[in-house]
Structures are given as C-alpha cells and as structure tokens.
Amino acid sequence: MLKKLAFLIVLASLLLAACGTAAPAATQAPAATDAPAAAATDAPAKVYTYADMTLCYPQLGAESDWRTANTASFKETAEQLGVNLVFSDAQQKQENQISAMRTCIQQGVDVIALPPVVEDGWDAVLQEAQDAEIPVIIVDRSVSADKSMYVSHIGSDMVLEGRKAGEEMNKLLPNGGNVLEISGTTGSGAATGRAQGFRETLNANITILDSQTGNFNPTEAKPVAEAFLKKYAGEIDGFFIHNDGMAEAVVEALKAAGVKPGEIKIVSVDGTRGGFQMMIDGWVQADVECNPLLGPQVMEMALKLMNGEKIDAEVLTNETVYYPDNAAELLPTRKY
C-alpha cells in the first residue's frame, strides 16, 4: 500500500516537473523560431519589446550591500519594464551558477546576463549557450574566456578602479609610507584587477607590507585586520581595502586598537552607504565608486540584441571617486 502510494507520488511529481519545464519551452519556442521567419517574410520586421523578453540572471550571491543593490536593480527594472526575469542565487559558488545557466539554456531564454563569481572555467557553459544560440552578456566582473564566446561585457573596469585607488593613495601619502591590502575573493576578476591596478600606479616610495584575502566578507576580514594591526603596529600608514563591507570590519578593528580616525589612511572601493558613513566619520579618505545599478543598462542591451542591433563588446559604467568633503551631502542620494 505504502509502496504504491510512494510510487504514485513520485509519478505525480515527475509529471508536474515535466509540465513545469515543458510549459515555458513551448511558449518560448515559437517566439524564438518565428523571429527570423517573420523578419524574412513580412515586410515590417517584428520589433521586440521588453514584454517579449525572458532574461536569465544567475546572480552570484548576496555577499555585500553592493550585491544586494545589484539584485534589487535587476528585479525592480524587470518589474517596471515587464521583462520576465529568471533569477537565481548561486551563493558564491561557481557550480551553482553554471547549473543555473544550464537550466536557463534548457528553458530557452532570450538572453543570459552572467555576473561571474570567478574569472576562469566558463568556456564549457558559454559554448553550450552559443550552441543554443542564446547570447550571453557578462555583467560586472570579467571572465577569462575568449571574447568570441560572449557578445558583450558590461561593468566596471577593475584594473582602472585599482589604478584610481593607487592614485588616491599616492595623494594621501605624498611622502611615502607603508600600506596593507585586504583583497577580495582569490581568483575573482575584482580582486585580481584591483590588486594589479593598485600596484601599477603606486609610487615607488610606498611599500605594500602585506596582503591577505578577506574574501569580500567582513567576518573574514576582521581577524585579518586584527592580526595585521598587531604585527605591523606603528608602521602602518594606509589600508587599501577591496570593498566597503570589509572596510567596515577594518574600522571596527582600528577602533579596538585605539587608532583615531584619519591616523591610518583608508582607500576603499564601492561607494555604499556604509562607505559614505565611514567617510563622514573620518575613517575613509577616498572611496572609488563601483556602480551596481546595472539593471536598466543590461536590459536595454538585451533588447537591442533581440532586435538584431549591434552592441559594443565592452561597455563601461560611469564611475568616479568620492571624497569625505561632500560625503554628507551625497549620502541621502545613495541608493545602496
């Protein structure tokens, strides 16, 4: 009896699962195949609108306020424009992102926008997307795969951010000094790019005493900062921290070490509210912006792709550097 029941349940769930995947595929298929045919036969080619679009966004996780703002930007924009957003959260794991992408490919979405958690290892799944003729836009961080594997990369130039941070550090320490670096996730485009750019522009009289990963995660960054503060007590002139969340953890460690705001110069990246608050309080001297509100731009690009328009292979977001002098004025305008 029980066995029969269990069998029925399994059967029912299988059927349901089958319907679940079949339904979108069925509705999707005509839309996808009609397009070229319609364009060929009917004189006025079908112009797609946002309502026709199914966009897949396998978000990499929710490791910082920046990421939360990025997620919110996509969800809100999709709702406003009527885009069907297939959203998933990979919890900072590449294998989750890849399986989410495979699901999207099977569903036959129109465009995939991928914020890669690390740089390497995307070739296979990008090839699968290409075989399925689904264009991929790389969002935010970069990938090491060949440029022909995806249509465009939109996001911040991480090396440029690192260079900007290096210039700020040069300005803050004109007479040279010792700095420490707390970097992001090892192997991520953001961490390697920022580290590289920072080293490129840093004056010769400034030495990087030590560098350790905080994994973009405040809880991991705090013990690192604590250990650094004891090891290099009295020698530290500056900190370069790869995001604002970790900077908050470092500030917490500085407070415990009895350091007064401004005694150790801090250059951080992101420009979150927390970052602005730290500038107002005098802890952070320069915050390099890294704009997370990419939803509107990405969806515009996706629509252009669907309508067969050309888009640039490399799109940069508008970013600046923020300073403490106008932080208090700007704080109310910050969205993340």
Binding site: A62, E63, Q92, N217, P218, T219, K222
Partner: peptide, 14 residues
C-alpha cells in the same frame, strides 16, 4: 556574538 562582531548579518555567510 557572531552577528554582533560585524553587525551586518549575512544569512549566506554568517
């Protein structure tokens, strides 16, 4: 205690 350390509670990582 862990939540109080950094006082930003991240369900994924804490």
């Amino acid at each position: 205690i862990l939540g109080s350390y950094i006082h930003a509670i991240d369900a994924n990582n804490i």
